[in-house]
Structures are given as structure tokens and as C-alpha cells.
Design a protein around this nucleic acid. Structure first.
Lengths: 193, 193
DNA sequence: TTATAGTTAGTTAACGGTAACTAACTTGAG
DNA sequence: CTCAAGTTAGTTACCGTTAACTAACTATAA
């Protein structure tokens, strides 16, 4: 199990780790680079984390929390819940830009099965909470009924992920929140029943 | 510039490179692993490529060609062109499954700016050829007019990319072509004017 | 109040392993 | 005989990690 309550130093370390990963991939996330960027020596890192794996896993777990985001817990709010969820993705990333380059990058962590599993389980958690809301939205008549959930999920999260990726690749060259709102408007238009 | 005409051995090398990258990320793409999988020694690799960078760049350039795919050249076919393009993405990947784990994974190659630039330029090429077709499709009245191109691009390619990613993460657990056809049907439904 | 013991967070030096790459030699086919 | 394609044996640089030690702070018992 990975710690949830982090010391100030631990937070600094995983924050630096996220920045290094965002800048140059996991290849760039080395203990040496970490220490250098923190202004301490490599062994000092091990006073705060057992090993590199714990650092990476803690970093991944904190993707969620990075922007002090609380994931709507089993909300059954229908389409407003979907909207909240989608928009929370944008504000999460906007508040912590390096996230744009790693949040939806499952491939970055595929060298260690432990990492991929963590990410995939997070993806499934999201999918499940969206499922409840989307089915409710279909019931409410807010979302068309002629497309099944799995496909609906792709139609929504695909563009969301792509927009965030484009924002990351462009180095935050546009206003993500604005474009995100616009995307949501387009999604509502195309998916309403 | 990277070579286009490859010897049999060079093709073997980049094919192996793709498989290694698909299996464990760029961390897994090492000269040692390459040589081992090819049944030769490491220095022998350098008889066929100047250095590792050339191998990776050649591999990326060949993403397009992997399935003997010819990218529709400045087609102005409207919606049928869009359909052809989208479906060609699925058949490209289905014909060469490891592609699913690297084709849309710009982050995998962000350690070397040269690599990212290559990938981004490919993405732009796609976007531009889609632009011609989509504008024509809007003119023809096949696609709704109340969404501008950039957003339309996201609404289409987002789900396409996500489906391919899911197929890769699931280790080809479902029929990509069938699900791809279904996705296209859903896209047509939601985007028709 | 102050000596003792323990903790925290850092240091320097070194370990074994692996990365990409190279020089120099060998082999086999045309 | 030549030369493309392989080999063996090395290089330098970096990886994660550990050992041994220390300065500075904190808690406790006499």
C-alpha cells in the first residue's frame, strides 16, 4: 500500500517527479535528476521514500488529488454529474499543467505492471462513476438512448482526453477551461436526445 | 532525413523495435533487447543503423506504412473520405497490433524532441487532410454546420484514438474492426445535420 | 536545568548492473 | 579477392541503491 498522508518533503519530491516526467517522460525521472532538482543528494531521497517504485506509485495515486479534487462519490446526478465530472478533468489539469502530459498516458508507465494496473484501476473507477450518471441521464431524457454506454463513454472521454493532450503538447497555448466549456457544449448538442 | 527504402534486415530491426516498445515502452527498447530478439549481437545492429536514434525515427516514420497503408492524398471526397480515413486507422492497427500501444502515444517519445516533432507533424498531416474532407462534408450537408472544424476533429479522432487505446490495453480482447464500424455509425448519428 | 539518548535529514563514497557505442578481428558468399 | 555482416572484448556514462557517518534538533529522566 502507498501512503496517503505525505510530509512536506514527500510532496516536494512527487511534485518534482511529476515535472520531470512531464518534461521528458519516465526516462527523465531518475533519482539523480530528482535530487538535483531538489537541491539535495541522491541518498537523501531514500530518507523519504523506500525506493523509486514508491515514488512513482505515490505520484500516480496523487494524480487525482493534485488539484485538491474530490471525485464525485457515486453521484446519481444524471447529466449535471457528467458535466461536473468532465469539467473537473479540465480544472484539475489547468491547476497543474504537467498533469496534461501524464494523466492519460498509460503507455508512459507500461514498463512496470504495477504502475499500469494502478492507472487502469483509476480509469475503471472513473468509467464506473460515469456509468451511473450516464444511465440516469438517458433515463431523464437528457442524453440519446440509441447509443450504448461503452460507446457513449468513448464519445465523451475520447474528445476530453484529446483536448487535454493537445493542450499539453501545445504547452498550454490556449485557455483549457474555455475550450473545455466549448467542448462540453458540443457534446451536449450531439448527444442530446 | 531518415531512409525510406529499407533492407530486409532493417525491416526486421524496426519490426522488432516496435514489438519491444509495445511490450514495455521505450524503456524496453534497448540495443541489447533488440539484438537478443533478432538472434545477433549488439554491434551487428550498427551495421544496419547509424545509431539508436535512427532506428526510433525510422520506426516512427513507418507507423504510416506498417500496414501498406496509403494515406488518401488531398482527397476531397467529403464524408466518404472521412469514413475511409477513420476506418483505415482501425485496419492499420488491426493488421499490426503492437501499433495500438504506440501509434497515439506521443508521450512515449518525449525524451527526444526530434521524436515528438516527427509524431506531431504526422498528427498535423492527418488533421489537414481531414479538414478538407470535413469542410466538404459540411458543405454537402452530411455533417452538422454548428460545430467548427477544430472541435469536430476532436469529436471524431478523440473516440477513435480512445477505442484503439482500449483495444491495446485489453490486448486485442475484442474485434477492433467491428467495434470501429460501430463507432463510425455512432459518429454519423451524432454528427449528421 | 541539564546531561543522555534518540530522531531527522542530510552528506561522501562506493557498489553492481546496464545503457549506447566502438575498435579490431573473422567469416562466408559472389 | 572483396566486402557485407557478423563476432569478441572492450569503453564511458549513467542507473538505483547501500554503507557509514554527521550536524542539528527533540524528548526525557535525574
Amino acid at each position: 500500500m502507498v501512503k496517503v498522508n505525505l510530509t512536506k518533503r514527500q510532496k516536494e519530491i512527487i511534485d518534482t517527479a511529476l515535472n520531470l516526467t512531464a518534461k521528458g517522460g519516465i526516462q527523465n525521472l531518475t533519482i539523480r535528476n530528482l535530487a538535483e532538482n531538489l537541491g539535495i543528494t541522491e541518498p537523501a531521497i531514500y530518507r523519504h521514500f523506500k525506493n523509486k517504485s514508491e515514488i512513482v506509485k505515490t505520484m500516480i495515486k496523487n494524480f487525482e488529488v493534485a488539484g485538491n479534487q474530490k471525485i464525485a462519490s457515486v453521484s446519481n446526478e444524471g447529466i449535471t454529474g457528467v458535466e461536473k465530472f468532465v469539467k473537473s478533468r479540465f480544472s484539475l489539469v489547468a491547476a497543474n499543467p504537467p498533469l496534461a502530459k501524464v494523466l492519460f498516458s498509460e503507455e508512459l508507465f507500461m514498463d512496470e505492471p504495477e504502475y499500469s494496473e494502478l492507472l487502469i484501476s483509476m480509469m475503471h473507477k472513473h468509467k464506473n462513476s460515469l456509468k451511473v450518471m450516464l444511465l440516469k441521464a438517458q433515463e431523464d431524457g437528457d442524453i440519446r438512448n440509441d447509443i450504448e454506454f461503452d460507446m457513449l463513454f468513448r464519445l465523451i472521454m475520447g474528445p476530453v482526453r484529446l483536448l487535454i493532450k493537445q493542450w499539453g503538447l501545445s504547452n498550454a497555448a490556449f485557455n483549457l477551461i474555455e475550450k473545455g466549456d466549448l467542448l462540453w457544449e458540443s457534446l451536449k448538442k450531439t448527444l442530446k436526445s
